[in-house]
Design a protein around this nucleic acid. Structure first.
Length: 661
DNA sequence: TATGTCCTTTTTTTT
DNA sequence: AAAGGACATA
């Protein structure tokens, strides 16, 4: 387990005398340290896998780690190991301890959209920006472990106090729906462990060694949860890099790095500075940029890899031209190097930037995978189906009730729901419970009540069969009964309907398989669906396609050739983040982008961009100046359209060669 | 009262 | 492009 590690890596794997913080620079092999350490604990130190928990930042990272641990341990040794995100871990704690905090074990988990919907009913505003600000404020409070009362006390002005009061009723509403939002998945386990020493001891006994990845991106609540689980002995290894902290806007606090040293005076610190990923030019550029930040530690990454190709900076006419440039260059380069599409990634600051790139790649017939972006589970058709599942598992889930009752249309509209809502509020009951009450007959005219009751009985029937029949059969019944396919084709154009139906089929097949593989009922599946993503479950790695990703979503990944687009003032750094600590976070984002590249790095920016109706001139990002020192070189004359055509011909020849023609 | 059509607006990053 | 809102229609 200790072979092929450099000496600080080996030290990090072996160190078990107390709490450990590994300061791992980009590409310094931190995942390798974590996975090796897990295997070392099990194989060389006699740990039972059930006593080990590895905590990652995304589900995708968790999956990859599980895979890599699987290469080091056989399945018997790895059985029962916890490898998950903070949120998934919190969810499983809460499912088991629900009763202790006044929830039933089948509570629902709301996504951000549903949670915001509830909030908007509470603060009656039409202004979307206000709503977003309020939601963000409440989220920050939750991540700082502030209760509604606590928030109200320390509110700095009347507006904040108002939001604090909204926080109060928001929380009450969630409880009434037997629902939680994402932040609750961390906050509530912390509350539980603080109040209930027995539960805390139980979980500490169960998870005896913690490994926390991307530690710099933990927020106050997550840190607290980690401490409660690790106990006073500090049986953990935290791995992080302050230069890659890019989630402050979500409540993450780099201060947690410093706090770790204060809370655990015996904390051992091991820095990893040798980079195994990038060529020297790329690494030096990254170092030059990040030097402009005030930093906890001034670690300069170094590498034994060669100089590599010069970094390219390309100025483009506009975003269309930028997209075409990227497409043409990927195409030409791949042809010359006989490489794979999967060797290229296009990275950007905001999701909207992907659209033009997608168009250009489609036009050039270059396959691509959009990662980050909106997840499979955010798609309307998937949310439609999951609304039914949520409702079957938890009939008190009002947001799910509303969505399922109205899609597809079945004669239940806004005014019906409003009447029912009023009545339910009066009775302090959920919508579902209210519609079966005697009093509902008086509150609603028969014309409105009738379709509601029909719907309610339909859900009851499904819930009944979901308890005894396999998940797949129930799902097929459901889709047939609501005639979802027909409805899709009626309300969308053919192309959209087909792709949506395909997604639904994928989703349903996947659930059925999961149901029979793991012997889970539909109800059990429905309870975990909120935190999973189908795309993350698929073996994306196999597909030969260019990757498109936001900078945030690209963290932790690496690609032979990276195109970082839109390197302009007001984009990177973002217009809202032009000074102070926010600018520093933007610089770290740039740093993350640069250090994704192994061999090739191309930075592009546009001279003008369309904002609304008019063209506005753009200026290159200040980060370009920080990075440049004659190493990077300006691109030659812009590629003429003829080159694009030539590239097309080459592609054809290439394809023929591949087919053996 | 439910639903369909046309119009406006939208954008930071995500569990 | 796509979602949400205002207005029109059945």
């Amino acid at each position: 387990m200790l072979a092929n590690l450099n000496s600080p890596q080996r030290e990090a794997v072996k160190y078990l005398d107390g709490p450990l913080l590994v300061l791992a620079g980009a590409g310094s092999g931190k995942t390798r340290v974590i996975t090796r350490k897990i295997a070392y604990l099990v194989r060389d130190c006699g740990f039972d896998a059930r006593h080990i928990a590895a905590i990652t930042f995304t589900n995708k990272a968790a999956r990859e780690m599980r895979e890599r641990v699987g290469e080091l341990l056989d399945s018997r040794q790895a059985k029962g190991m916890t490898i998950s995100t903070f949120h998934s871990l919190g969810l499983s704690i809460l499912r088991q301890e629900a009763k202790a905090i006044g929830y039933k074990p089948q509570f629902s988990v709301l996504d951000a959209a549903d949670a915001q919907g509830i909030l908007s009913d509470i603060i009656k505003t039409t202004d979307k920006a206000t709503l977003r600000r309020a939601a963000a404020l409440i989220s920050n409070w939750k991540n700082a472990l502030l209760t509604p009362d606590g928030a109200e006390k320390q509110a700095e002005n009347e507006a904040e106090a108002q939001v604090a009061r909204a926080y109060h009723s928001y929380q009450a509403t969630l409880k009434a729906y037997q629902a939680m939002d994402f932040d609750d998945l961390i906050r509530l386990p912390v509350d539980l462990f603080r109040a209930d020493g027995e539960a805390r001891a139980r979980w500490q006994g169960r998870l005896r060694y913690l490994l926390v990845d991307e530690y710099q991106d933990t927020n106050g609540a997550q840190y607290e949860l980690m401490k409660l689980l690790a106990g006073s002995m500090g049986r953990f290894t935290a791995v992080g890099d302050d230069d890659q902290a890019i989630y402050a806007w979500r409540g993450a606090d780099v201060e947690n790095l410093r706090r770790l040293g204060e809370d655990y005076p015996t904390l051992k610190l091991i820095p990893l500075t040798q980079n195994y990923r990038s060529s020297r030019r790329i690494l030096e550029a990254a170092n030059r940029v990040i030097r402009h930040n005030s930093r906890l530690t001034d670690k300069n990454l170094w590498s034994e890899l060669g100089h590599g190709d010069p970094i390219q900076v390309v100025d483009c006419k506009d975003d269309r031209h930028e997209a075409e440039t990227v497409a043409v260059r990927i195409d030409a380069h791949r042809f010359q190097s006989r490489g794979r599409f999967a060797d290229y990634a296009v990275l950007y600051r905001g999701n909207h930037q992907a659209r033009v790139i997608e168009e250009a790649l489609r036009a050039a017939k270059i396959p691509y995978i959009l990662s980050g972006g909106q997840s499979f589970f955010d798609r309307a058709e998937i949310k439609d189906i999951t609304a039914y599942l949520r409702l079957i598992a938890n009939p008190d889930d009002d947001p799910a009730f509303i969505r399922a009752a109205t899609t597809p249309r079945r004669g239940i509209g806004p005014s019906t729901l409003e009447r029912l809502g009023h009545y339910a509020a009066e009775r302090h009951a959920s919508l579902f419970a209210a519609l079966f009450e005697e009093g509902a007959k008086a509150a609603l005219p028969g014309k409105q009540l009738h379709p509601l009751q029909e719907f309610g009985e339909f859900i009851n029937r499904l819930a009944f069969s979901a308890q005894r029949e396999p998940a797949g059969a129930v799902l097929d019944d459901l889709l047939g009964a609501i005639r979802y396919e027909t409805w899709l084709y009626d309300s969308e154009d053919e192309r959209a309907a087909r792709s949506k139906w395909e997604n639904v089929r994928d989703f349903v097949d996947w659930l059925s398989r999961k149901g029979s593989d793991e012997g889970k009922s539909l109800i059990e599946l429905a309870q975990t669906v909120a935190l999973m993503s189908l795309l993350e479950g698929r073996d994306e790695a196999e597909v030969d396609a260019v990757r498109l990703s936001t900078l945030h979503a690209a963290k932790g990944l690496e690609y032979p050739h990276v195109f970082l687009i839109g390197v302009e003032e007001e984009i990177l750094p973002h217009r809202e983040c032009l000074e102070g600590s926010r600018l520093e976070e933007e610089r770290r984002l740039m740093y993350v982008g640069i250090t994704r590249a192994q061999r090739g790095l191309t930075l592009t920016w546009c001279k003008r961009r369309k904002r609304g109706q008019e063209w506005l001139p753009c200026t290159p990002s200040r980060f370009l100046a920080e990075l440049a020192d004659g190493d990077s070189r300006r691109a030659g004359p812009e590629l003429a359209p003829e080159d694009a055509k030539a590239a097309g011909k080459r592609r054809l020849a290439d394809l023929k060669a591949m087919l053996g023609g």
